[in-house]
């Protein structure tokens, strides 16, 4: 919900100069982990009228979260000044717009706001349940999907060629945001050529991705890499998503994540054999 500065039919704290003697602010911080996006809100309201209404239970604070990318729109009500909201991470992606309000919980008659603009004089107002009493500044956060929610595990790995000449064994670096797999120049050329060939890509997964994934899970078990690295966060999520635990056997976990690559390799090989015969 994009909040433009607007004229309400009654004074609203935080809107233009409706109530110059009071402020409504919300400090917002967003953080994420494997399961959820967290929004921490700290409300600071200097309007006695609003604070009294919230204390009495006649009004509440509202955290309004909207993500156009995933058609997500929800309002969360609370009365504490410090509030933590948790949203499952597969509900949000890209720009997330967050607005904070105070709204009435019931119809109010004779409503007047302390320190309202003098133009309002002694006029009082009749408000209905849900009417906005105070508005904070809009915030936009960007939520980055921790991994490609549909792609196989390759999204956390990058295959490249080594600068060394001649035949070289595959080498792996785990210190970056993605796991970097280095192949010899000749192997890399073959990889580029064969990875889009029907029936071969699964076999490549078996021979390149599976051993690296097993190794990466060992590294996580030994806690040698922290959550600052994107591949670490992604891999932990993947382990959760196949309903296994980090301490389980790495070879089994890796095969579950890759959806039983041996079985798929045999299926591809059968197709190739049948096509040749």
């Amino acid at each position: 919900m994009r909040l433009s500065s607007r004229s309400y039919p009654y004074p609203v704290v935080g809107n233009r100069d409706d109530v110059p003697g009071a402020a409504f602010q919300a400090a917002l911080e967003m953080s994420t982990d494997r399961q959820a996006v967290y929004l921490d809100a700290q409300i600071k309201c200097s309007s006695k009228t609003i604070n009294d209404l919230v204390k009495k239970g006649d009004a509440c604070f509202v955290l309004h979260v909207e993500c156009s990318n995933t058609l997500y729109r929800r309002a969360f009500e609370f009365t504490e000044e410090d509030y933590r909201l948790q949203i499952p991470s597969d509900n949000l992606n890209d720009a997330v717009e967050v607005n904070v309000f105070t709204r009435t919980n019931k119809n109010l008659s004779g409503y007047r706001v302390d320190k309202a603009h003098s133009d309002y004089g002694n006029v009082s107002f009749t408000l209905e349940k849900g009417d906005i009493l105070a508005v904070g500044e809009s915030h936009v956060f960007y939520v980055e999907a921790p991994f490609d929610a549909l792609s196989p595990i390759s999204s956390i790995m990058q295959i490249t060629q080594t600068h060394k000449d001649g035949d070289q064994p595959m080498q792996v670096q785990y210190g970056g945001q993605k796991i970097l797999i280095e192949l010899s120049k000749k192997d890399f050329d073959d990889y580029k050529r064969l990875k889009t060939t029907d029936g071969v890509s699964t076999a490549l997964t078996m021979s390149i991705v599976l051993p690296v994934l097993v190794d990466a899970i060992y590294i996580l078990q030994k806690a040698e890499e922290d959550d600052d690295l994107r591949w670490v966060r992604s891999l932990k999520r993947r382990i959760d998503s196949v309903e296994m635990k980090l301490e389980d056997d790495p070879l089994e976990v890796a095969q579950r994540i890759l959806e039983l690559p041996l079985k798929r390799t045999f299926a591809s090989a059968r197709k190739l054999a049948e096509a040749d015969s």
């Binding site: 607007r6 309002a75 309000f101 849900g130």
Partner: peptide, 9 residues
């Protein structure tokens, strides 16, 4: 919805 938070209704 300009004055009332429809989402809270």
């Amino acid at each position: 919805g300009g004055v009332c938070l429809l989402d809270c209704l």
